[in-house]
Design a protein around this nucleic acid. Structure first.
Lengths: 329, 329
DNA sequence: CAGATTCTTGCATACGATTGCAAAATAACC
DNA sequence: GGTTATTTTGCAATCGTATGCAAGAATCTG
């Protein structure tokens, strides 16, 4: 079923059919009616790919995500995808987990599909690739990650402020030994959260007692937690760089070490994923305002796509303290 | 950068460039070398969309998923996406959660993109739409859901067998009052799991003591659990139709009602998502062999795409009992 | 009602590739 | 080396739609 078939059936030109399906094009009521009837009868719908060839706009957004195990990502993907759908765009999904550390070929493939824009979720991009996208005039958004380049759009939480909030939440419980469980140290989120956390502690004159790295993975975080607590004087307060690792930490603390939370040790996470509020975890955490982040991401991205001189900026969202059962008031 | 540019630069015809990028086409070494040099220099890569128009193959798979809150789906999406990537296909993602109960327009939109195939993840399809896809010769795979139609491909666990397994796992603990927490009753998975579960109980001469519906949602499942246990003689064994709801049930049982699992009540879930093995839940469950399901899905789908007379069949995978800490041996 | 203005409509071309066909070039064989 | 068989290569048509342009129809104006 092509526009030519519809045109023949309706007794009009192919251009007329095309115009009927192009919002804003000029078609008389008479024609419109004839075309509508013919199109419905034949079950015709315009071929998006052919349209993309002419207009140079595919209405496809390439989304690269590292993995979906951490619940933060499915939530973000779902909301982002819905928001884009509502704007007439659709998501071509790329998992980067199997090509570890090498987003290069993935992004190449994305470009082959002539996407209108790219969202990198907690993934970063080499400078040459960023240049390439700029040359091709394809906007790239970093979501929940930042890069030094000034000409790179990004939507992130104010992670430094978030780290400070975490420090305050723990300090309210008058801790004696404060520890930090870090995520992947190459990530801007980790660097900034730790910076804010350390600053918050320093202002209160409290030293950082211990530190271990969980690389944003459950298993590594569990191992790091054992390392932190397998000492004569274990910490009594712990800031974990995301909820996903915090669950690992809680599992070890409660079920392996038999410690009481928050009496023996207080824990604060980051993200506020859905499960953080489940009674099994009841995790105090620093919320990333995901809905706000997603709208900002969509606004900036679509703005950049549809408007060539849309300014390049980094959107920074304020995080929020969420007090639950793993901190002492 | 088009193939014409490359051709001009390399001093060959445009067809030659096209052939160079078409695996299996005949190009002499001499030409190949010239084209390679020119293409690399210009950074040329074939336009997938233009290719799709000619060949009628977009190498895009439309994936419809209802929601991503239940961890089973992110895991499935991730694995499926990776497996398709490895076969040179890519996933166009559609969330059906905002268009509740109405997949119609979503699938229409998918068809507009001229996808090569469609995967419906725990979503079903009206008969007219199925007809439409058949007429367009676009294979559709149901993943983790079945429909009565014989001409509809599906990859599912043997849910009846799974229900039986759940019954056995609970019966080993010699329960007195066995209850069932059901998912969405319109879903084939629910119907079959319950059928198998009831059959398993019946064979042992054990009656079903109580039943409530959680619709595969956490909150509704929590509410349904309260309903089940807010009686003088609460159940001492519970089969929940998926892990996601089982987490809700466990949260209520342990943290609201203060009951001991498995001493006061044994619980069995279904799926074996990652978190089921976390100490906080330590959930005994019936595993769906996701890797097997995904490979089967990919094999059947790609088979159907690349081979017109690929037989239509329903692949049924055997589930596996996973004994953990929520059942009595 | 004639003339000026605005809307509609069809023609023809373009987007960036693939592919059947026939001519040219190469390989194979005696 | 001549003849035949096989590859390579370029030409030209094609996929399904959008859109600039000019001509025709409709509307407006005094």
């Amino acid at each position: 079923m092509t526009s030519v078939d519809v045109a023949r059936k309706a007794g009009v030109s192919q251009s007329a059919v095309s115009r009927y399906f192009t919002p804003g094009a000029s078609v008389s009521k008479k024609m419109a009616e004839k075309i509508k009837v013919a199109a419905d009868e034949l079950g015709y719908r315009p071929n998006v790919l052919a349209r993309a060839m002419i207009t140079g706009k595919s209405r496809i957004i390439g989304l690269v995500v590292y993995y979906l195990e951490n619940q933060f990502y499915p939530e973000a993907v779902e909301k982002l995808s819905i928001a884009l759908q509502e704007n007439g765009y659709h998501v071509l999904l790329f998992m980067a987990s199997n090509t570890i550390g090498n987003v290069e070929p993935v992004v190449q493939t994305i470009l082959d599909y002539r996407v209108d824009g790219i969202v990198l979720m907690s993934v970063s991009m080499s400078s040459t690739l960023a240049d390439r996208c700029r040359d091709l005039n394809i906007p790239v958004m970093l979501f929940n990650r930042d890069q030094p380049r000034e000409d790179m759009r990004a939507v992130i939480s104010d992670n430094v402020a978030g780290g400070r909030i975490a420090a305050q939440m723990l300090l309210e419980g008058k801790p004696l030994r404060v520890a930090h469980l870090a995520g992947f140290e190459g990530a801007s989120t980790q660097q900034e959260r730790e910076e804010g956390f350390r600053a918050g502690l320093a202002e209160a004159g409290v030293p950082l007692y211990a530190r271990a790295v969980g690389n944003y993975h459950y298993k590594e975080a569990a191992e790091a937690t054992r390392e932190l607590f397998n000492v004569p004087q274990p910490p009594d307060a712990l800031f974990v760089s995301d909820d996903h690792m915090a669950f690992a930490a809680l599992d070890v603390i409660r079920h392996e070490l038999g410690l009481k939370v928050p009496q023996d040790v207080a824990v604060v996470g980051f993200d506020d994923v859905t499960q953080a509020s489940w009674p099994s975890f009841n995790l105090s955490t620093v919320r990333q305002r995901l809905n706000t982040m997603v709208s900002a991401c969509v606004d900036e991205l679509i703005g950049a796509i549809e408007n060539d001189d849309h300014p390049v900026r980094k959107v920074r969202i304020e995080p929020v303290a969420i007090h639950r059962g793993t901190t002492r008031p």
